[in-house]
Write a protein that binds this DNA or RNA. Structure first.
Lengths: 194, 194
DNA sequence: CGGCTTGTTGAACCTCTTCAAATGAAGTGG
DNA sequence: CCACTTCATTTGAAGAGGTTCAACAAGCCG
């Protein structure tokens, strides 16, 4: 059920203010939701990896655009079709929206009250946890995306990554691959919040 | 239906990590949701004024605490009781959650990419709009609450308020009462975002 | 009025940003 | 396969916005 579509790196999946009639699920790759201000400042709402559902996060119209972080495959389903097929869509939709809200609230805390170092640490921890804490975690997105998610600049992100590495918290095998050296240290930096 | 409860200024309505079995509606006064970090840094999730519904914004457990901003009256309904009374609760719940999410996303944009001045302007505009843009808007909350909502310090909030006033954007008749002098100017500062 | 809390203002400091350059990685065509 | 181009990332130095610390003013309530 539904249609599989592929999107090239940086291709738009849906635009801001477009009708929100479709529900999406990442099959492969990674997706970001973005909001751009009149003067070009950009904020990333969230990242979605394989298995994640997105596109449901808003009202009748999308308030964020969605773009492929890199070449990605996405399953697209019409919300109305899904509704016709069975009533538990309401429940699924609510659950998904609720999880979105929880993530947005964590994001608010991060942006409102965490330092640059804590933000980057939180980001790495989140990504590591999300993947089931594998030995080596890879970053699907570039530094600019990370910066626009964390409310920082690429330079600050880069500096904090270097700092975390020299502090033996994480270790980068490549620019987009790291391992967590000191999980407790990472958690302490990330989760000062209860 | 439901129980009316009153809460004194700064009194807790529910705590962080408590079970979320109740739904609340502000009858009079104002409510804030807060999250406190281990070292005392505080972030306010949102403010709720008369007519607003809150307490539904989370999963099985509250991730933010709720407190009365000032002496307030709140209508409390058990979620399960509401569900038993009629099926349209699901719809109401979803709608409410979705609106919460939209507000949280705006909040993310504000915290991630707006300057101090823009944050304060956005806050004042939001409050003015919410009340139907009356001639005189009052601020139910103190400067510390505003600061903790905007991810700033009270000093910065105070400075930006003074700045907006000397720029003939708003005018304060009292510390907690202002009128919008230049609505376009306020909107321009607040809504650089599309 | 006196005492307390809340809000404002000033000055020094610090974190993060901005601007600039160097380094590294990735692709292209000979 | 290597030189060359191009883009992404790192690092450095200077600058700005916001914070911190401190003092003062203004409400608020007994």
């Amino acid at each position: 059920m539904g249609l599989t579509m592929t999107f090239a790196k940086d291709e738009e999946i849906y635009g801001q203010d477009e009708d929100a009639d479709l529900i999406y699920r990442v099959l492969e790759g990674a997706v970001r939701t973005t909001r751009v201000m009149a003067d070009g400042r950009r904020q990333i709402g969230d990242f979605y990896l394989a298995g994640d559902i997105f596109g449901l996060e808003t009202g009748p119209r999308h308030r964020f655009a969605a773009e492929a972080v890199r070449d990605s495959a996405v399953l697209v389903v019409k919300a109305s079709a899904l509704r016709a097929a069975g009533g538990d869509i309401e429940r699924l939709g609510w659950e998904t929206t609720r999880r979105e809200l929880e993530r947005a609230q964590e994001h608010v805390l991060l942006l409102g009250r965490k330092t640059a170092c804590e933000r980057v640490a939180s980001f790495l921890k989140d990504l590591s946890d999300k993947g089931g804490s594998p030995a080596v975690v890879d970053l699907p997105m570039g530094r600019q995306d990370i910066a626009d998610y964390l409310g920082l600049t690429i330079e600050t992100v880069s500096r904090m990554l270097s700092q975390l590495q020299s502090g033996r918290i994480v270790s980068f095998c490549a620019t987009r691959q790291f391992r967590v050296v000191n999980p407790q240290g990472l958690a302490r930096l990330a989760d000062q919040a209860q």
